[in-house]
């Protein structure tokens, strides 16, 4: 496992500010899937969501010195992804207009964007903590959470007893709860002006 997972979110952002590439890699791996999930809610053109998200993460690196805390990073990623989706849709629209077509994607409604973001964040949190679990525990949780397998099925695949699977599940859940600690939440207090600017844009756009 990447030793960087030991760092708190706050420390990761500090490392990012210091141009630490491994901190960037970790944040990239953490957010890329959930941001793609988020972007796919707005754009349907094949591959466009992925392109937009890669662009947002590229910009995150370019502006790495600007971020004071974890929430500012998240706000930046979601807002720039959402805006790029909207602009991408506009481009598609202009192209269609030239071809004598008229077309209107459902406007990206603020409420929808917020709902999708909450959903994407929940998924990110869950998959983040699953991926931080010790090997055997992680395999059990993945089979159980992502593939919906029963304890018995998992036991058969892994060649262990059902009670071992149940123990691993309980251990996994407890470790996940710990990783999702309230401490992370209290960091929300550290908010600086840059985050505020993004927030206003997010709400306005």
């Amino acid at each position: 496992m990447d030793s960087y997972t030991q760092f708190s979110d706050f420390e990761l952002v500090a490392l990012l500010r210091n141009s630490d590439e491994r901190a960037f890699d970790l944040l990239f791996r953490r957010f890329y899937p959930s941001l793609c999930f988020f972007a796919r809610r707005f754009v349907s053109v094949e591959g466009m969501a992925e392109e937009v998200v890669q662009d947002s993460l590229f910009k995150l690196w370019q502006r790495r010195k600007d971020f004071e805390n974890y929430n500012a990073v998240k706000a930046f990623l979601y807002i720039s992804t959402k805006n790029a989706c909207r602009d991408g849709v506009d481009q598609e629209q202009r192209k269609l207009n030239r071809d004598n077509q008229w077309y209107l994607q459902q406007e990206i409604m603020e409420q929808d964007a917020e709902d999708h973001m909450i959903k994407a964040e929940v998924l990110m949190e869950i998959s983040k903590v699953i991926n931080q679990l010790p090997e055997q525990c992680r395999r059990v949780m993945k089979m159980s959470y992502e593939q919906g397998m029963s304890g018995k099925e998992i036991a058969e695949i892994m060649g262990v007893s059902v009670s071992t699977v149940n123990n691993q599940k309980a251990r996994g859940l407890s470790l996940m709860r710990k990783s999702l600690s309230v401490e992370n939440l209290s960091l929300a207090v550290f908010l600086l002006s840059i985050a505020d600017t993004f927030g206003k844009n997010f709400l306005r756009n």
Binding site: I118, N184, K200, L203
Partner: peptide
């Protein structure tokens, strides 16, 4: 920003609830 911050927090609480 407060609303956005709050949304992040809500997402974290929901995730925690999912772990029981």
């Amino acid at each position: 920003m407060d609303q956005l911050k709050n949304s992040f927090k809500i997402a974290q609480i929901i995730a925690r609830n999912l772990t029981g």
